[in-house]
């Protein structure tokens, strides 16, 4: 479990994260959603220690990570897998070498064993036959998937994904969402996902934090989110007419006015 306590972070007097607290539980997909520029990436980087928060704490299993000694931090980091928004693949290494890198660094397995594990995770992100390619030869979505493969190759205890779905087609998106959900449950991982993709929100959002201009504006689950009365949140999730209609339908269904799939024909008559 990761706990964030009163985190504040600004750049040159501009406050980007304003007093955010949250509990991110293990075995759940914790989503941070919000419009572009609302501070999702900065919040995530504060959690993993790439940015030093101006004030506040981040606790891993109750231990204060922010003020921890360098070596102790390193030990926790070995249990962290992270996908960066820009993938951050090593461009001098092939796909295979990229994914194998954490194994090379932290395990003593034989090459054959490592290769087997690499192919296993590449298979899980739907990426075969690209082992020998360099990042420059991949599409944006493929890079994302290699990034995810690299993040999960060591079976992390904490998984951070910064927009795993941006740049992916809906089908691959779904595969990635399912993968994230699966491994979260399978290994009881504390998973934190930044996204503005409503499909993912509905698909895997066990716990959702809505960020608005650096503030935690709303918190809840995917079951609650569409019924929320929070205006700013509604503006975000029902940005399109289509979704507004979908919400109305869902409301009607919920109220027993319609029975989805079955009574539609009658209703349309």
């Amino acid at each position: 479990m990761i706990e964030v306590k009163n985190i504040k972070k600004g750049f040159n007097d501009k406050v980007v994260i304003d007093d955010v607290s949250a509990k991110l539980e293990a075995g759940k997909c914790n989503l941070i959603i919000g419009t572009s520029g609302s501070g999702k990436t900065v919040l995530m980087k504060c959690m993993v220690g790439l940015f030093e928060p101006d004030s506040g704490q981040v606790l891993y299993q109750g231990e204060d990570f922010t003020h921890m000694h360098r070596d102790a931090k390193k030990d926790i980091r070995k249990q962290i897998g992270m996908l960066f928004q820009g993938s951050a693949l090593f461009d001098s290494k092939t796909v295979e070498q990229n994914v194998m890198f954490p194994l090379d660094m932290f395990t003593t397995s034989s090459y054959a064993e490592k290769l087997k594990r690499v192919n296993e995770v590449l298979d899980r992100v739907n990426l075969k036959d690209s082992n020998k390619k360099f990042p420059a030869e991949l599409s944006g979505g493929m890079k994302k998937r290699v990034g995810i493969a690299r993040a999960i190759v060591l079976n992390p205890k904490y998984l951070f994904c910064d927009e795993p779905n941006s740049g992916l087609d809906p089908l691959t998106s779904l595969v990635i969402d399912k993968l994230i959900k699966e491994i979260t449950l399978e290994y009881n991982i504390t998973t934190i996902v930044n996204t503005h993709d409503m499909n993912s929100v509905m698909e895997i959002g066990d716990h959702i934090i809505y960020m608005y201009k650096g503030l935690k504006e709303w918190e809840g689950s995917n079951k609650e989110i569409i019924f929320s009365k929070n205006e700013k949140l509604n503006e975000f999730i029902f940005a399109s007419e289509f979704l507004k209609d979908a919400k109305d339908m869902r409301m009607l269904e919920q109220a027993g006015k319609i029975d989805n799939d079955r009574n539609m024909d009658e209703l349309l008559k």
Partner: peptide, 18 residues
């Protein structure tokens, strides 16, 4: 510089590598 800008250095750091 390229590794810094494309967050490859951050990626190393997150893996627990100095």
């Amino acid at each position: 510089g390229n590794m810094r800008v494309s967050e490859q250095i951050d990626a190393l750091e997150i893996m627990g590598i100095n």
